[in-house]
Design a protein around this nucleic acid. Structure first.
Lengths: 146, 146
DNA sequence: TATTTATTGAGAAAGATTATCATTCTCAAT
DNA sequence: ATTGAGAATGATAATCTTTCTCAATAAATA
């Protein structure tokens, strides 16, 4: 039984064939998926799956903390499974290609909690995004600025 | 002459009455403004200002680095003047009220540059968001979990 | 002031997400 | 296995934000 299915059973939330098809897609996938990718992959398992159900289920899974939604500037929204074993991570966004690289920085997380506390807040979540461009060594015609 | 106007002159970009009206709104405003707030305030100066022009001008100012666009989850996009004197800052978002608090953390910026470099990136920008709820002392009926 | 080009406003269009609603499905209790 | 109540679904309409189109206008330069 999948981790998603387990959570649904524990919470007494209905398990439907639509949801099982989506669970399978999201649990198998590596990295970030757009809504259209999720829909088309899940339709291979459940031919009649509707777009509205995809959105509803993604919202439900986000609310349960089983997946995360990412919205980077000028990109389609993507969804990603929250790993039970791996640590929370953040993202480097390549401003040229849109490529996403993940990194962890638990020591930063601690600093952010302290900042939140200093302003009278209990931190519940946080997000760090780095925008940059890949450093290319041995580039034929360097563009200066380095 | 406003800082925005100065930049436009230096770069040889046309100064129109639409743009001047928007400059005035954005330079006077404290904090974050939505597109509708910007439009309605600017219409007091330029009665015929159109929505498309607001979007076009905001995009232009973002590209010039004179303002920043912020898109927090489940909230309308907002725009904020980039100060020439104050440091780059980040945001704490109150998950209950949506209130935004700003904080600076230059020491974190340095750490992020190093992380970027470790992954082969030259950092060009970054974003830190803390989500949390206000700690209320002396609350009549605490909700546990503390 | 004339000329050239960029900018504008209005509305259409696009894209993403949510709402509506009649039908279908799930699941606990029979 | 069957049933019944409520939850979930798919199709599509509706909404919301942002961009596009294009004829008319305004800005900058000569």
């Amino acid at each position: 039984m999948s981790a998603f299915e387990k959570t649904f059973r524990e919470r007494g939330i209905s398990l439907t064939s639509s949801r099982l098809a989506l669970f399978s897609v999201l649990e198998k996938a590596r990295g970030h998926l757009t809504v259209d990718e999720i829909l088309s992959r899940a339709r291979k398992k459940d031919r009649t799956l509707g777009l509205a159900t995809v959105y509803r289920t993604l919202n439900l899974l986000c609310a349960l903390g089983l997946i995360e939604k990412h919205e980077f500037p000028n990109m389609e929204a993507t969804y990603e499974r929250v790993s039970e074993t791996e640590h929370h991570h953040h993202h480097i966004i390549d401003v040229r290609s849109g490529a996403i690289t993940e990194f962890s920085a638990d020591e930063l997380d601690v600093v952010l909690e302290k900042i939140a506390a200093a302003y009278g807040y209990k931190m519940q979540g946080h997000k760090i995004e780095i925008y940059g461009e890949k450093i290319i060594l041995d580039e034929a015609s360097p563009k200066g600025k380095v």
